[in-house]
Nucleic acid binder design. Structure first.
Length: 566
DNA sequence: AGGAATGAAAG
DNA sequence: CTTTCATTCCT
């Protein structure tokens, strides 16, 4: 493994706005779970054979990933152009550079295969966020509503209410949420075949040589400019294993904190990062969690889905192709639209290969789309939605469904023209309108529309392509909080009645569903408190928090009771 | 097999 | 922290 390939690796990772050796800031990065500690210890004691394996795996992951031609780091223009080519990925990364950053372990020899999807490259499947379950989706949709009712209520309280609300929903009401959760989960899993529900622990960030003298290093060519830094910067000498993580994380923080857009930093960063990676292969492997080991020893190609370059088709191209296929009334509409709006973006892109405009066009397509939709009164503003969700969401759903139907390309239907016209309008107005890709794998997704939401557009790197969860959530039926209150009232009444009657335990059990439901959480609560006993040493703050929580809960219940009594 | 633990969203 | 739930781990 030579320096060039590593350099290349860096360049690649940089292209994706993620850094090879960065360490995830996520709380899940390090497993503090008690039951895993013994495993780690076991690994520590484990035979050399295992460690060997680990080492091999790691070195492979780190260094055999790229055999591609190396581009000089100095060529920043190349980088930028690469960004422009792999469109949507870059700016998303820019917006969320700190998310998951553990790219290292995901790189494997198989990464070279051109068939891989580039999408997964920066987002290893096992670092993808879990797909939310039905309740969480429900929360996402209804939290603003509850928040509106209780503006001063802490988020925990809101969540409690939401849990209560959820418990009072019947099956049919829950169904759309369950369905969406399942649908998204399926799509997600198919998009991330290697996804593990348990996040893998941080990889051995660096296996640095503890004693430089004892190890035969694979030294990079001296001619390389960063060698100087390399030789000077050997963190392995400074700390032991346990400390290395912190050190490297510091370094990595430095990396990740560096704005990805700042190309001037590239040299510096790369020169810093390369030494770390250079030293790695020769050093004894870190003790690693059992699962981790198994995972990587079994799936050496776990990064199969990680692809450097040349990914899927440009979505905008797809859109354009789709548009070009409709040559009827749609064309007329388009002509009208074209007449009204200037063609700046397309012309400019055609001129010289620079896709700058297109790129910048995509930068804030979410916002633009939002503006467009709002100004055109085609859709409700999402923020407005948040505030007035109860009133608007049903209308929104209607409109969205109409749009979806319009997008469904049934010739002859006027709605079709509407949908495509909107699309054209969006294009003319330099606004990105992201309709659901129609080349979806499963047919049912074809009817979906895809909009931009502030949160989803760049955040879900591992979300299945062509699946806009946020939009789907916004399309879900919005439940009435008042109905929830009413139901709550009724259930309370029934409880009381049953209590006073003191009979029919079956009914009581049924109606006390909320209580029995809370058992699980109570259980966990106790467990957590137990664990916290060991962890928390600041009794004062704990007390304060407890008091605050008590007061908060009291206020909350008071409010609820007020509303109920009304 | 089943209980425990975990993490998904959201501030 | 707080909710529910799906999943995984461990006994």
């Amino acid at each position: 493994m030579n320096f060039l390939s590593m350099q290349n690796a860096f360049t690649k990772s940089h292209n994706n706005n993620s850094f090879l050796l960065s360490e995830s800031p996520s709380k899940n990065t390090f497993i503090s779970d008690s039951r895993r500690t013994p495993i780690e210890n076991n690994n520590r004691i484990s035979s050399n054979g295992q460690e060997r394996k680990l080492q091999e795996v790691w070195s492979m992951h780190k260094f055999e990933m790229d055999k591609v031609k190396v581009e000089p780091m100095v060529n920043f223009n190349n980088i930028k152009m690469t960004w422009a080519e792999t469109q949507e990925i870059p700016q998303e990364r820019i917006e969320e550079p700190t998310e998951h950053t553990l790219e290292v372990e995901e790189t494997s020899p198989k990464t070279d295969e051109p068939e891989m999807q580039n999408e997964k490259e920066e987002s290893p499947s096992h670092h993808a966020r879990r797909p939310p379950n039905a309740f969480l989706i429900f929360c996402k949709k209804h939290r603003p509503i509850v928040r509106e009712r209780f503006p001063n209520l802490e988020n925990r309280g809101v969540t409690k209410i939401l849990g209560e609300w959820w418990a009072l929903l019947n099956v049919t009401e829950k169904q759309p949420y369950n369905d969406l959760a399942k649908e998204y989960k399926d799509a997600f899993l198919s998009a991330n075949p290697n996804f593990r529900w348990y996040k893998l622990p941080a990889p051995p960030l660096r296996t640095l040589t503890p004693r430089p003298t004892t190890v035969t290093k694979v030294t990079p060519p001296l001619s390389s400019p960063s060698n100087k830094l390399l030789s000077e910067f050997t963190p392995g000498k400074l700390a032991d294993e346990s400390q290395l993580g912190g050190l490297t994380s510091l370094m990595n923080n430095n990396f990740t904190a560096t704005p990805k857009t700042d190309f001037e930093n590239i040299n510096y960063e790369s020169s810093l990062s390369s030494p770390v990676s250079v030293i790695q292969p020769t050093t004894p492997p870190k003790p690693i969690k059992k699962r981790f080991f198994e995972y990587y020893s079994e799936n050496k190609g776990c990064a199969r889905n990680i692809l450097p370059d040349g990914g899927g088709p440009d979505s905008s191209v797809v859109e354009e192709q789709n548009n070009s296929n409709n040559m009827t009334q749609q064309d007329l509409m388009n002509k009208v639209v074209d007449g009204i709006f200037a063609k700046q973006p397309e012309d400019s892109t055609e001129k010289n290969g620079t896709k700058e405009i297109r790129k910048s066009e995509r930068m804030c397509k979410g916002k633009r789309y939002e503006i467009f939709m709002v100004e055109g009164k085609l859709l409700g503003n999402k923020r407005e939605n948040k505030l007035m969700q109860q009133k608007h969401c049903k209308i929104d759903s209607k409109i969205e469904t109409e749009l979806s139907a319009a997008n469904n390309n049934k010739p002859g239907t006027p709605k079709l023209d509407l949908g495509n016209t909107i699309k054209r309008l969006a294009e003319r107005t330099n606004i990105k309108l992201d309709f659901e890709n129609q080349n979806d794998d499963n047919g049912e997704t074809n009817q979906r529309t895809r909009t931009i939401s502030e949160t989803s557009e760049g955040s879900n790197k591992n979300s299945p392509p062509n699946f806009n969860l946020d939009l789907r959530i916004s399309n879900l039926p919005c439940l009435s909080y008042d109905e929830f209150l009413q139901r709550k009232r009724e259930s309370k009444k029934r409880k009381i009645r049953i209590k006073t009657d003191g009979e029919s335990k079956h009914k009581a059990q049924k109606l006390d569903k909320t209580e029995t439901h809370l058992v699980g959480s109570k259980k966990r609560k106790n467990k957590q408190s137990i664990t916290h006993l060991g962890k928390k040493e600041d009794g004062l703050s704990t007390d304060l928090i407890g008091l605050a929580t008590l007061a908060e809960v009291a206020a909350n219940t008071e409010k609820i009771n007020e509303q109920i009594s009304e």
